[in-house]
């Protein structure tokens, strides 16, 4: 019995090593894009392959290896963001609103939203725009980026994400509010005003 198990383990190890050759590059590109951290992305990809080996018997032939590996990787990325979210740097939570609004809560004159010409989702067809958007996302403080990424990575509704993160809904949307203000201003300054 043990010998049979060992043989199976050897087989799965060989298969996963083949998958490393086939998919490690695109997995690294994805993890690097999501985290903007080379060393972290490498660790996440390595952890994903090790996790794949451990749970190889759960792999169902009907899904493609790539889909399965990417779902493991996405879970690893989400876990990373959850940790980031739980350890926000103190001053991150306090900064944000006072940069855009005066003490009465009104927009500062030079930070008021301007008209965006030709703004629609076709903008993403422009590689220069995508670069700016990604650049602006990665300028967000760690826990803000985590909140934004969790929302779009998981495609869950607000309540579910709050449950997962064990935070209150108001805490979650307040962080998203600050993130969105910063992201909007960054795009305006780096793309729409130019």
């Amino acid at each position: 019995m043990n010998a049979a198990k060992e043989a199976l383990k050897g087989d799965s190890n060989t298969i996963i090593q083949e998958w490393v050759q086939l998919y490690a590059e695109s997995m690294f590109a994805w993890a690097h894009y999501k985290t903007a951290d080379k060393a972290l992305a490498e660790d996440l990809v390595q952890d994903s392959f090790l996790a794949a080996l451990q749970s190889f018997d759960k792999f169902k032939q009907e899904s493609s290896p790539k889909t399965w590996l990417f779902s493991i990787l996405n879970h690893k990325i989400i876990d990373h963001f959850r940790k980031e979210f739980r350890n926000p740097v103190q001053n991150e939570a306090e900064s944000g609103l006072s940069f855009f609004f005066n003490s009465d809560g009104e927009w500062y004159k030079d930070r008021r939203p301007q008209e965006w010409p030709a703004a629609d989702t076709q903008l993403l067809d422009n590689p220069d725009f995508r670069k700016i958007l990604e650049h602006c996302m990665h300028l967000l403080p760690g826990s803000w980026l985590a909140a934004v990424s969790l929302k779009y990575l998981e495609q869950k509704d607000g309540k579910e994400i709050c449950k997962d993160l064990q935070i209150t809904p108001s805490n979650f949307w307040q962080i998203l509010h600050r993130a969105k203000l910063q992201l909007r201003a960054c795009l305006e300054n780096n793309w729409f005003k130019k």
Binding site: L97, F100, F101, D104, G105, E106, W107, K151, D157, G158, K159, P169, F172, W173, Q174, L176, H177, K180, L181
Partner: peptide, 15 residues
Amino acid sequence: SCSKATGLIEKELYF
């Protein structure tokens, strides 16, 4: 205020 209004604009996207 604008600060509160933009907060609610974000809130309504999720809640």
